[in-house]
Write a protein that binds this DNA or RNA. Structure first.
Length: 589
DNA sequence: CAGTGAGCGAGCTTCCGCTTGACTT
């Protein structure tokens, strides 16, 4: 009469899994982590109050962590414990990654399970996947749990050792850690690049040309057989870096304009090259944030909160993921939609596959419309208004997912060169080019909005062209842009710093050190001093851009070790020795 | 005698990652 209990992380999953497992099972969620290191001194258990512990959380012997159930998690834990007590069997179906394994272990401890729980994993919620998992239970992977503990303890160690020293210098509103440190460094170094940037002058020349039927604008491409220098041909110090470029002066410029205005030009070369357009990759957290920023003007925080609503409505899959893998279900649904709405040529004979980056944990699939047959955006118009954030974001997710399974676009890029001969400048070559798409492929569903096109004149080699007027523009190279919240998050991901669930909160945790205009993160002087006068001289290791990746390598070793507990202790001992040396260096400076 | 300042000790904060929903601006 009592039923087995299945515990997942997200409440939203409960409904779908209940439907699959039926009334024979009770399905509940932990709503994320349920135990952690004590958050502050008040939450340290009384028995440790007068004992020596590190960072308010770790016993010196063997770096054993002290775990507590935070006040606001006690209700959930009690509820789960009561259910577990009555259940003949407990299935821990937390996510299939390091943190998921940790939550499973914490559940086993916090629920005081007498019988070994069954650990089950699935990374898509479909009937076969869930049933298969139930039939093939595993046990909790201690290696994974120990590598989680190493990560958790190291983060506490770094944050709590260095932040107090930093606060002595910088005041109450500044702190650092494995993630915050490099994030602030990125912003500071970008500002320094901008400050030291030397701008360079260059010229752009174009001419309005005319044939019998059409007027068009052509750009100056080369003189004396060399290409005209553009912004790319200077480095950040204003140095000319390309020997085979023509760096034209203002005087050259005026002479060339004169020649153009008085000369007669001839079509010298027409080139047609085939071009293909690749469909977009399926979405993960960072690319969703970028696409929503570029196409809808959403900041990451807004994107995530709208996506959360869509997820809770059951319209999309999980939105915090580092994977662009589409499940078979998703591929089938996309292909079905394509074959029903487009021609056979829009459907590749084999599905398009996209691989994950090396440091992806891939506990969830890509972000896509949910289900085994996708809801078309227009079907949502009863539920959402056309100009609502939900409708716009869902449409974006739908379009990119389906487009990722369509064929390439095919086109021809035609370039026309028009030439004037001159004694001083040799051949003066003007050019115009444009792409005509002969087959739309995925572009018949989504178009690249940034693309502009100009109608090309119908010219043959040797045709004469009249130049009506010409024009020059003085241009300057520009320093690199500051990071936006979106581009900083992309950079952090590239460096393996932070996780999909934390990207938005990383930005918010460091807001005190920059002047926030969201799209342009400018560091306060405090941040610059923190990096240059504190972190770099004394704690350089902890703002190394590779630090997180190196940590991951060490965590992998713990995971694969024969004795993970021992490997964890060794890793933390070595880490502690290192940080103590850095602290000493700082204290004695 | 009243006001000031040095010195002391107690108590607080800080990390990252997993989930929502309640809260404020």
């Amino acid at each position: 009469m009592s039923k087995p209990l299945v515990i997942v992380e997200s409440p939203t999953k409960v409904k779908t899994i209940s439907k699959i497992l039926g009334s024979e099972y009770i399905v509940k969620s932990s709503v994320g982590h349920i135990r952690d290191l004590p958050r502050n001194t008040k939450s340290i258990p009384a028995e440790y109050k007068d004992k020596e512990i590190y960072w308010g959380a770790v016993k010196p012997k063997d770096f054993e962590n002290i775990y507590v159930i935070p006040e606001d998690r006690k209700k959930v834990v009690k509820e789960l414990r009561d259910l577990a007590d009555k259940a003949p069997e407990v299935y821990l179906a937390t996510d299939d990654d390091r943190e998921g394994e940790a939550i499973a272990y914490h559940l086993k401890e916090a629920l005081e399970l007498k019988k070994e729980p069954k650990r089950i994993k699935f990374n898509e919620i479909t009937e076969p996947a869930v049933l298969n998992a139930i039939e093939n239970p595993e046990i909790i992977d201690i290696g994974k749990f120990k590598s989680y503990e190493a990560r958790r303890t190291l983060d506490r160690m770094i944050g709590y050792e260095i932040s107090p020293k930093l606060r002595d210098l910088g005041g109450a509103f500044i702190s650092t850690g494995r993630v915050q440190g490099p994030a602030i460094r990125l912003i500071v170094e970008k500002e320094e690049e901008r400050l030291s940037f030397v701008k360079s002058k260059y010229f752009e020349i174009d001419a309005t040309c005319k044939t019998s039927d059409i007027e068009f604008l052509a750009d100056l491409k080369s003189v004396k057989g060399n290409k005209i220098a553009s912004s790319k041909d200077f480095d950040k110090n204003g140095k000319k870096i390309n020997k085979d470029r023509e760096y034209i002066t203002e005087k050259d410029c005026n002479q060339i304009l004169d020649i153009l205005n008085n000369g007669s030009a001839k079509t010298s070369k027409i080139k047609e090259t085939p071009r293909s357009g690749k469909p977009p990759k399926p979405l993960k957290t960072t690319s969703l944030q970028s696409s929503a920023r570029n196409n809808l003007g959403f900041q990451p925080r807004k994107t995530m909160s709208v996506a959360q609503k869509l997820y809770q409505e059951g319209l999309i899959t999980y939105m915090r993921t580092d994977s662009i893998r589409l499940s078979e279900t998703a591929i089938k649904a996309s292909r079905e939609y394509i074959s029903e709405n487009f021609t056979n040529d829009h459907l590749p004979s084999e599905p398009n596959f996209y691989g994950d980056s090396k440091n992806a944990q891939a506990a969830h699939e890509a972000i896509r419309p949910s289900g085994d047959s996708f809801t078309e955006p227009k079907e949502l118009l009863g539920k959402y208004k056309e100009d609502s954030d939900e409708f716009k974001l869902y449409s974006l997710i739908f379009n990119i997912t389906v487009a990722s399974q369509m064929t390439e676009a095919k086109g021809i890029t035609k370039s026309i060169e028009i030439e004037i001969q001159d004694d001083t400048f040799g051949p003066i070559v003007l050019g115009i080019s444009g792409t005509t798409w002969t087959f739309g492929g995925y572009r018949d569903l989504i178009k690249d909005l940034s693309e502009k096109s100009q109608e090309l004149p119908d010219l043959k080699e040797g045709d004469l062209v009249n130049i009506i007027s010409s024009n020059s523009e003085e241009k300057f190279t520009t320093p690199p842009n500051r990071y936006s919240s979106t581009s900083l998050i992309n950079k952090l991901e590239e460096l393996g710093i932070g996780r999909p669930s934390t990207y938005v909160s990383i930005i918010e945790s460091i807001t005190s050190v920059f002047i926030n205009s969201e799209s342009s993160l400018k560091p306060r002087i405090l941040a610059i001093a923190m990096i240059n006068n504190f972190m770099k001289p004394y704690f350089d290791l902890y703002i190394d851009y590779e630090f997180s990746k190196l940590m991951e390598d060490e965590l992998d070793k713990i995971l694969e070790s024969k004795n993970p507990e021992e490997a964890k202790i060794k890793f933390l001992e070595e880490s502690y020795e290192k940080i103590k040396k850095h602290i000493e260096g700082y204290e004695n400076a």
